[in-house]
Design a protein around this nucleic acid. Structure first.
Lengths: 147, 147
DNA sequence: GCTGAAACGAAGTGGAT
DNA sequence: ATCCACTTCGTTTCAGC
């Protein structure tokens, strides 16, 4: 599973425009449409491309309140148990285990502060969770699709 | 700029598969392909849909190390100046101002720890930045496209 | 292995109703 | 919003590098 320079250019083109035609991508990378399609099919099969998605403004759908929550667990923590709990909460956008005092960092999206409070209560309901420390997002400074 | 129930279903379908054909989306929401296309065009024009993108596994491209950095500023901080600094650093995936002790929370992606250290130095080079507190991501627990 | 060219069916697109 | 016509794209097959 090797990704060469041309593959990277194709990935870049599809990150910029996920609905670009193969011919359009081919023009950018100097390849014909069928050649691009074959590479994209391979990149998808190899898991390099996980999928394609529409980028939707969360605020329009009523998800205007964001928070980052540090989760502190009691005693030894198995990441997998915590993962199942967090995965069952739809307001969890992403979550990861981290170094430092906290065990996990959880990114939440809710409609408003009241809604956010109920989500936090739900996170804390897990017996593994000892306590949490939250910060509310005031404004987005940078938001990128890829590095 | 109003988003009705059908629009939301279309958005959901396109978040699940950003390259779905209009006919395919139409079948899911009970509309003809041209009707779906018209709605999608409107949603894009209104900024509800910001674009379409390929979801690429960062690790395959050599972006294996992630960190979240709390940025503490000296004195009064203007979010816009900090935004310009962070935007100029390609390793910044996203960043936001937050409540609490820190002024901003920055999500970074780098190739390895050595690379991450140089990125952190670059963040701290900004005169606004007094100090930073970082956590390194150990493992992803949840990763969603949308709430 | 990879590529590009051709061909056919499917999808995108604009206009009329 | 649907229907229709026309254009463009997706996809397979084939042959050449």
């Amino acid at each position: 599973m090797t990704v060469d320079r041309t593959d990277e250019e194709i990935l870049g083109a599809l990150q910029r425009n996920g609905r670009a035609s193969y011919a359009e991508v081919g023009q950018q990378v100097g390849l014909s449409a069928p050649a691009v399609k074959r590479r994209v099919d391979r990149l998808r099969a190899d898991g390099v491309i996980r999928g394609f998605t529409a980028l939707v403004d969360p605020a329009v759908l009523g998800w205007a309140t964001e928070a980052y929550v540090e989760v502190f667990c009691a005693g030894n923590v198995s990441p997998d148990g915590l993962r199942r709990t967090l995965e069952s909460i739809p307001e969890v956008v992403d979550a990861c285990t981290v170094t430092g005092e906290a065990d996990a960092l959880v990114h939440l999206r809710a409609g408003d502060i009241r809604h956010m409070e109920t989500v936090l209560e739900r996170v804390r309901r897990d017996r593994r969770v000892d306590h949490t420390r939250s910060v509310i997002v005031l404004s987005r400074l940078v938001e990128r699709a890829a590095p």
